[in-house]
Nucleic acid binder design. Sequence first.
RNA 1: GGCGAGUUGGCGGAGUGGUGACGCAGCGGAUUGCAAAUCCGUGUACAGGAGUUCGAUUCUCCUACUCGCCUCCA
Length: 453
Amino acid sequence: MAEIKLHNTKIRGEQLFTPIDPDNVRIYLCGPTVYDRAHLGNARNVIMFDVLFRLLRHEYGAGHVTYVRNFTDVDDKINARAAESGRSIAEITAETSQWYLDDMAALGTLEPTHMPRATAYIPQMVEMIADLIARGHAYAAEGHVLFSVESYKEYGALSGRSVDDMIAGARVEVAPYKRNPMDFVLWKPSSDDLPGWDSPWGRGRPGWHIECSAMSFALLGASFDIHGGGNDLMFPHHENEIAQSCCAHPEGDFAQVWMHNEMLQVEGKKMSKSLGNFFTVRDLLEQGVPGEVIRFVFLSTHYRKPMDWTEKKAAEAEAVLRKWRGMVAGVEASDVPAAVLASVANDLNTAGAIAELHRLATAGEAPALKAGAALLGLLGEDLGGWDRVAVDLSDYVTRFNETRAKAMENKDFSGVDAMKQALIAAGVEVRMSKAGVELVPGPGFDAAKLEAL
RNA sequence: GGCGAGUUGGCGGAGUGGUGACGCAGCGGAUUGCAAAUCCGUGUACAGGAGUUCGAUUCUCCUACUCGCCUCCA
């Protein structure tokens, strides 16, 4: 059994991971709000959690880990998208959810055990909100229900802020019905043209944070092991989740470990919708960047460090994966090598694990390479195929061999060189040896350019 | 202003209180008709300052810079 160490935002440091129940290790990842394609940054924590999921399954058994990732399918961004496109909300969320699943599958991520949709948990949210009011942690005002941050003395602990400090530098709009400017919405009224559900406070819809509290409680209980997301969710989203969950269920203590990944950057800037400098996972896939390459690039940087997406990294990753795939083809995986496991168990040090894979590759230990890569979700069947171009070059091999044989006799290699140049120009790797010629379609293979031969 | 993360060689990127990974690129060699691929070998780094220590890139403090959060955002 490997010793798993994880960085816990709650204590600002690493700690040994000890599950509440080794027979049922429970983890929760904040999933997407489904109104558009997932951008590349969205993939980072999904891949991070996928590695975590694989590690925990390896250690505790595949049947002993429960992974929940929600779909937030009620949100004002979705409403806005529906209004501007004239399409129905249901249509948008269904389509976007499927896109998300397709894109994440293309990156080799395993599906979570549960993928609850917020709209299927409205009664649980209403119940939790009513409970919070009953316990004096929330109040109804003008059709809204607000969480009273003053009622929870730990508010701000995760992100290291105090309510007073936040008010001092506040940029939040202060609604007149708020008792404290930092109070946040649990429930808000819906006009007739907006989605809404009946509730004790009138027809309305949930605020942003309550869905995660309600769904994690329903599926994982009042206490569970690990909760995660991007570090931009630390405040306010996770802070508010903690407040809601801990106040509604004081018998539990919500997530034991909080894991937050750093942001992905593009040209030194965070990729974000408001900056408009984002591109989607699908964009890259359509440009021909294999999902496995995207995954490899992500895993090359530790999750708690900023990572820049660059084409150069993608090209390097592709070259490495081609080489490794060539090595492990037809090879039976061994047990996961201890050094790889130790790296991954060390706060998901995937970059360190990849370094170990390089060592194994150099040493020619293909079975271990395959097993270690599998722990990272690499070199598997699911992500394969992209490195092999389905093209029959045997005619060219024959012609090349004939031309070369003549050249060997008369010492005039001009014909061979011309042919070689043409093949290289078409993206074919030409390997000549005494035994003969091998032609391998490479990254830039272009069948059209072969026509000229 | 408050809170947090980062700063390692040409590039990417781990790790460690004491002989400075690894990958890519570069250079030299083997191989080749020439190449490619492969193999062997090889150079350069720990933002700055102070402190703790026999010794710090690694621990502590300060400074600088970069990035993020504090508003929808992973």
